[in-house]
Design a protein around this nucleic acid. Structure first.
Length: 748
RNA sequence: GCCGGUGUAGCUCAGUGGUAGAGCAUUCGAUUCGUAAUCGAAUGGUCAUCGGUUCAAAUCCGAUCACCGGCUCCA
């Protein structure tokens, strides 16, 4: 924000010391009417100054949206009402907030003195059973806004009867309903709730239900609001479907990547020495990482990409230029600071601070005497924030000179400030290095490293870049959400004319990968900007946004990609496509992302010389079809339940001689396969064959070759495939050839 | 970051104020064995960390850290 000569000033009572040499503290905006040069603001307390801005209103579903609820969602939403009824019977003073249907069931948020635990579930479920047995009709009542407020005041909403305390959250919900929208209740038995519906006809239609967990959530999702208990449950038409759901949950638990990762020795998370969210890849896990890299490198090479390598660090200027710093700073590790003038800086800082304090104290004192109130003086900058800088205080002191006599010590402090400030300002800035949270800025500098012609485009720079993101501690989750990550990253610089075909090629690459990994269900989420966010959440280029989004939409339509469009979720520099895939057991994962960037190349001043001899800014496509190794491998572990196809399997082949008379024969097979880059080992421990097979199966060794005297004599092997049992005895050469082919073709 | 839960051997878990346990894994010994577990022995723990209560703490209390389930965020 640019400063002006005409500063405005505020006098805030009871404010602590300031520090003008660290970045100025900024306080939220306040409506003020001010006159110059100095004046008093009569703010009742300091706390009022700290009032936070109102959070953006969460998007509200329109009535039309609600009518689109599926039958299952209606049933679950109705189950939420029934659960609330049951809770209200057990704890009549419960205050309900909202209770929607969600992906796997429903929840209801409730404020209640009693802390609900899973031990309470049987009692709640028993009450629910009564409600369902009674088969109440879900009755819709249209009421006036006044009526609704009156009932809420009487505590009647989200309740079985009127209560002494008002239904406070329902009052809050009412306030969010736009003028003109009809207000309705749903009544089932004694329970009346403020609700837009829709519901099933009768409580008896809720076939099968079960409470699952209890968690906490803020009212309306805002951490400044009261914290509520969120009781989760799920419901289905019938018991069979409910049982299937829980079976699937069990299966997901069995396939949990953390569990299988530990069993197979793929990775460890060493929070104590390495840090939370920073996986160490063990040898078996590294196999997965490197096989994926190999796949991506081959695929990208064939598609005309070139590979680059960049360091893990970059100077502050990089991220200031890219614009990541203001938008993204919270997600980056704090910078490493190199300061060659550290001693001088500290010395000057301390002397300036002392001088400033002295001046500030005097000015505050004068103001206090004038106003009769204790407090401190501030300048109000153009954006309404309050600041208190040294130069400002010295200037304020000058303003007082006409009417007040300044003590010599204060004058001396002001002089010292005037003398040292320029010195301080002329110190070279502190050199700050950031761990990179993304690779694009480095790649932009590679683009900038040489003059570029339109003949060089499209330029596709690919890198397995390691990035570091400071995810909040509560976000970390196994491999799925980490702080150090490896991205299958690339940036495609192209002209507008090339955009459509490049973007289509990227999509085709996704589809190719899906096929290799046997992903049958996928969806692309096309995230676009919102007008309101321009200049805040999004770079302020309204026309470019529309134009780019239109290009993307056209390609998606033309190539018949399965996608949905979501407004207001784009990246700050352009529209984004998140790729969602569903694992073999039907769980959804957001695996990759694909972004169009029309803003950052310009910030870096990237240009190419076009046919017409003009310099033009390229478009940039950010794409990472395999996302991060961490998340992708986490996903694959669940998808395959750890039973990777041969080409990916950390243990591809294990040869088991029946007795040590076959050791040489077995060793020969091992040598042959190892010579062909196959991950094979020989096992001859003290255990019986049965035991060794058991262990090989447990370790998920893909091919188990048993060789006894019979096989050795005929130059055969007895083949066993993990999870598929014995495959019979085959000629050694045939088995070796099959193994090599399956690996080469990346057979599923 | 916020709320709640959990933390005992490498893994899975017993142990409710009175001398830290089991199975598997590991190591050693015996067994030479034909398709999902041979037998025996040994090793292994500051009971997450720090502090408090107590004659006595894995056990009770507090703080911190990590993990888990959510919220917010996100690849």
């Amino acid at each position: 924000m640019r400063g002006t000569e005409l500063r405005r000033t505020a006098f805030i009572p009871f404010f602590p010391e300031s520090d003008s040499l660290s970045p100025p503290l900024t306080y939220s905006r306040r409506e003020t009417t001010l006159h110059s040069p100095l004046m008093c603001l009569n703010l009742p307390t300091f706390l009022n100054v700290m009032e936070a801005p109102k959070p953006e209103n969460a998007e509200r579903k329109t009535l039309d949206d609600r009518q689109k609820m599926t039958d299952l969602e209606r049933l679950r939403h109705s189950a939420a009402h029934v659960m609330a009824t049951a809770i209200a019977r057990l704890w009549p003073d419960a205050q309900f907030a909202s209770g929607p249907a969600v992906e796997n069931g429903f929840y209801y948020d409730v404020e209640l003195e009693h802390r609900i635990t899973p031990e309470d579930f049987p009692a709640i479920e028993a009450e629910m059973k009564k409600e369902i047995k009674a088969n109440h009709v879900f009755e819709k009542l249209i009421v006036t806004r006044e009526q609704a407020f009156a009932d809420a005041q009487k505590g009647r909403l989200g309740a079985l009867a009127e209560r002494p305390a008002p239904s406070k959250f329902k009052i809050g919900n009412l306030a969010d309903i736009p003028e003109g929208e009809p207000i309705s209740y749903y009544k089932s038995g004694d329970f009346i709730d403020l609700c837009a519906g829709p519901h099933v006809m009768r409580t008896g239609n809720i076939g099968a239900y079960k409470l699952t967990t209890v968690a906490s959530a803020y009212y309306k999702g805002d951490e400044k609001n009261p914290q509520l208990q969120r009781i989760y449950g799920t419901a289905f038409k019938n018991k069979t479907q409910l049982d299937e759901y829980f079976k699937m949950q069990e299966e997901a638990k069995r396939r949990d990547h953390r569990k299988i990762g530990a069993e197979m020795g793929l990775f460890v998370l060493d929070a104590e020495f390495v840090g939370p969210g920073m996986p160490l890849w063990l040898p078996k896990g590294t196999v997965l990482v490197e096989e994926l890299e190999k796949l991506a490198k081959e695929t990208e090479f064939a598609a005309g990409y070139v590979r680059v390598r960049t360091p893990h660090l970059a100077r502050e200027k990089m991220y200031k230029t890219s614009g990541h710093l203001p938008y993204y700073a919270e997600s980056m590790f704090p910078p490493m600071e190199l300061d060659e003038m550290e001693t001088e800086r500290e010395e000057l800082t301390s002397r300036l601070r002392q001088a400033e304090l002295k001046v500030g104290e005097f000015v505050d004192g004068v103001m206090t005497k004038d106003s009769g109130k204790g407090g401190a003086i501030f300048e109000v900058s153009e954006d309404g924030s309050l600041q208190r800088s040294g130069p400002f205080l010295v200037k304020a002191l000058d303003g007082l000179k006409r009417d007040y006599s300044i003590p010599p010590a204060v004058e001396a402090a002001a002089d010292e400030f005037r003398r040292l400030k320029p010195k301080f300002d002329s110190l070279p800035p502190i050199d700050r290095y950031f761990l990179k949270a993304m690779n694009c800025p480095h790649h932009h500098r590679i683009f900038a490293a040489e003059p570029r012609s339109y003949r060089d485009l499209p330029l596709r720079l690919a890198e397995y870049g390691t990035c570091y993101r400071y995810e909040q501690s509560g976000e970390l989750f196994g491999l799925m959400r980490v702080r150090s990550l490896n991205m299958n990253d690339a940036h495609i610089y192209c002209t507008e004319d090339q955009f459509a075909s490049e973007f289509k090629a990227v999509n085709d690459m996704y589809l190719k990968y899906f096929k290799i990994f046997g992903l049958e269900k996928y969806q692309m989420r096309f995230s676009t900007h919102s007008k309101e966010g321009l200049g805040k959440k999004y770079v302020n280029e309204p026309e470019l946004w529309l134009k780019t989004e239109d290009m993307v939409r056209r390609v998606l339509n033309e190539s018949g990609i399965n996608y949905v469009e979501v407004a207001n979720e784009a990246a700050f520099y352009g529209p984004k496509i998140d790729v969602q895939v569903w694992s073999a057991i039907g769980r959804e994962f957001t695996i990759a992302t694909n972004q169009v960037d029309f803003a950052v190349p310009a910030k870096f001043g990237l240009t190419y010389r076009d046919r017409d001899n003009q310099d033009k800014t390229p478009l940039c496509i950010h794409r990472a079809p395999l996302g991060t190794h961490e998340r992708f491998i986490g996903f694959l572990i669940e998808h395959y339940a750890g039973n990777f196809p041969l080409w990916l399997a950390p243990d591809q082949v294990r040869v088991l001689p029946v007795t040590d008379a076959q050791m040489d024969y077995a060793q020969g097979i091992v040598n042959e396969l190892r010579g062909q880059q196959v991950r094979v080992e020989l096992e001859f421990s003290n255990d019986k064959l049965m035991g060794r097979i058991q262990r090989a199966e447990e370790r998920r060794v893909h091919h188990i070759l048993v060789v006894g005297q019979r096989e050795q004599e005929a130059n055969n092997v007895a083949l066993r495939i993990h999870g598929q049992g014995q495959q019979g005895v085959k000629p050694r050469a045939e088995v070796v050839a099959e193994i090599l082919a399956a690996i080469r073709e990346r057979k599923a």
